[in-house]
Design a binder for these strands. Structure first.
Lengths: 358, 358
DNA sequence: TTGTAAGCGTTATCAG
DNA sequence: CTGATAACGCTTACAA
């Protein structure tokens, strides 16, 4: 009963009286146990008691303290979304999908930006353990297996998105090999045989898979792989710009490393690439065709409009959230692996527009 | 001491033993109070005791349960970021700024997307009360004063970002009137007198301020305001597209509503505008000059590159987070109002490139 | 300097 | 169907 007297907390302006089940119980003339049952309709509560409780709760503008609840029932209804950088246009869509699923199901989501930095990743993971989140959706960059395992050992459900890590955890991704093959084959189909590739950071499985798809496509058509045609970027626009400059310099040195098309491992790098091309007076797609990856919403506003491999970003986030909740309720189930299919979107950067507006 | 026996929780796979201060206390041979003091270095703890505690904590891989802590000390170290849609390119940068400040200061951030929908806004606000977040950074669309007040009454610090609501709450924004004047004057300086305006949703203060800036600039140059030249959009690309189509149809009806320039209240609508223009065979900037607002990262990859009003988005988020923490520690301080200055970025959509690459 | 114990707001067990 | 009451994990007087 102490609660009743302590709930008027001195706090700046005046004092705030946050209502608790004790107050509700008092007002309704029942015990806290009854209040709890009534509010969560669990156990038996007489119709009449329930009404009184609900009425009292409303009058007092009662709002449950979910932190207190999570203390007793061991669930926080919180999931974390840990990704490299929400500023990278690929992620907001994923985040949106995850958040939508989460909030539809009573969870709220904590946002963490790691910048692909090991230190930040493990700091966040540690923090999330302290917060006792129920699950983590993780676009890993470099986290060590052990920090992930620590989470799992704490009973936290973890699912990876977009970036795989072997076979340890549930994963929601798209088929990057297939996607890269789609892109490369599209270029080959257009008659290109000298196709440059600007890859993502090689430590990422995602990047390696796309490189793999590029190589496989080449091989399947009997086109020799020329490693001088591939450059590594970091998924950011500027790196695509630099990569293209390097490729161009190389090409002009006259060592036989010319190319007529480029496949960039994501749209941002493709954008940088196109800028570099333009700066050198080269025209897309006339002189060099370019295809990107992701189909971020601005791919269609670039000029020429960017041909790219579309990933179902929103769905990835949504499904990741769904998967993480499933994992929570079934910690021992078999590993969940959701591999979505990317699709080729042909626009103007690989094919001249039928009716040029010029 | 019950705690000691209950910490081995049966949970699926096997069982997980999450360590608590009780375990640490036991292992270190001290009381929980001492553990608490040692871990938070508060109060007196002998050097020796402290070492033993720290050692034990490390061996047990102890992680504090912050939810339990917040129950006793009334602080959750959580702030919420409530915005219309993280998918709208303007917001990720703001979010990033807020998250960076927050995590640097020991807070974590909950992400909420409202879609500018009253129902979602108030549901989230209610949820955040239950979660006892310490503060809320809110890009309001339509929330009623009363739901905001309910938060404040609960002792939750609230600061608005980007979108103001009168004078009730702390706010971090940019000077929209000045920004719109910058844009309009730029166009006027280029010799345009027939300038169309595609506004944001009029219920938003932000939109009204930009319209105001547009009008003021016109007026200051003695250019008559023609309401047939302003159309309302919703900040999304598609609405900019539609708005321009309407403007064009109008213009062609020959009623004297021609224009040679457009100012769109954000970059996404500017993008839609440019597409519509292109579809009609009009050239930017030769036939129609266009300027946007926000300077989202892709403004520079559009072709022609978009002239726009840059807002310090990251800083807005950062400062909003800083402001909300300040408000927490000083609930009674005077209203905080941070008005940042936007800057004009001139690119190719208003001025022909010096050296065309064609 | 340390330990005991009350209290934070809920849920859940177990007698009535 | 209802009410005490222990327990959740931690902090903090208050004693010792």
């Amino acid at each position: 009963m102490w609660n009743l007297f302590h709930t008027a907390v001195a706090l700046g302006k005046w004092w705030i009286a946050i209502s608790t089940i004790y107050k509700v119980a008092q007002k309704a003339g029942v015990s806290v146990a009854t209040v709890s049952r009534a509010l969560n309709d669990s156990g038996y509560v007489s119709r009449e008691a329930k009404d009184r409780v609900l009425e009292a709760a409303r009058e007092l503008d009662y709002h449950m303290n979910v932190n207190a609840r999570s203390l007793t029932c061991g669930k926080t209804y919180t999931i974390a979304l840990v990704l490299p950088d929400i500023g990278n246009p690929f992620f907001p869509a994923v985040a949106r999908g995850a958040e939508d699923y989460a909030s539809d199901n009573g969870y709220c989501v904590i946002l963490c930006n790691t910048d692909g930095n090991l230190r930040k990743e493990s700091d966040y993971l540690k923090m999330l353990r302290s917060r006792k989140v129920d699950g983590v959706i993780f676009a890993v960059s470099v986290a060590s297996r052990s920090s992930l395992n620590a989470l799992a050992d704490d009973g936290i459900a973890v699912v990876l998105v977009d970036r795989d890590l072997g076979d340890s955890y549930d994963i929601v991704k798209t088929d990057n090999i297939a996607g890269a093959m789609l892109a490369t084959n599209h270029l080959i189909g257009l008659g290109h045989t000298r196709i440059a590739f600007i890859s993502g950071p090689m430590p990422l499985a995602t990047s390696r898979e796309r490189l793999r798809g590029y190589c496989d496509a080449l091989a399947s058509k009997g086109i020799p792989f020329d490693e001088r045609l591939v450059t590594e970027g970091d998924f950011r626009m500027e790196s695509g710009h630099r990569a293209m400059q390097a490729l161009l310099a190389n090409s002009r040195s006259g060592d036989g490393v010319e190319f007529t098309a480029v496949f960039a491992a994501n749209d941002m790098m493709a954008a940088g690439t196109m800028t570099a091309l333009e700066e050198e007076g080269l025209r897309v797609p006339a002189d060099v065709a370019v295809v990107g990856y992701d189909d971020i919403n601005i791919a269609s506003v670039m000029r020429p409009r960017l041909s790219t491999i579309a990933q179902p970003k929103y769905e990835m986030g949504w499904i990741a959230a769904e998967t993480v909740t499933r994992r929570m309720s079934e910690p021992d189930g078999p590993r969940l692996e959701e591999v979505l299919q990317p699709v080729l979107v042909v626009r103007d950067s690989t094919v001249e527009r039928r009716c040029a507006s010029v």
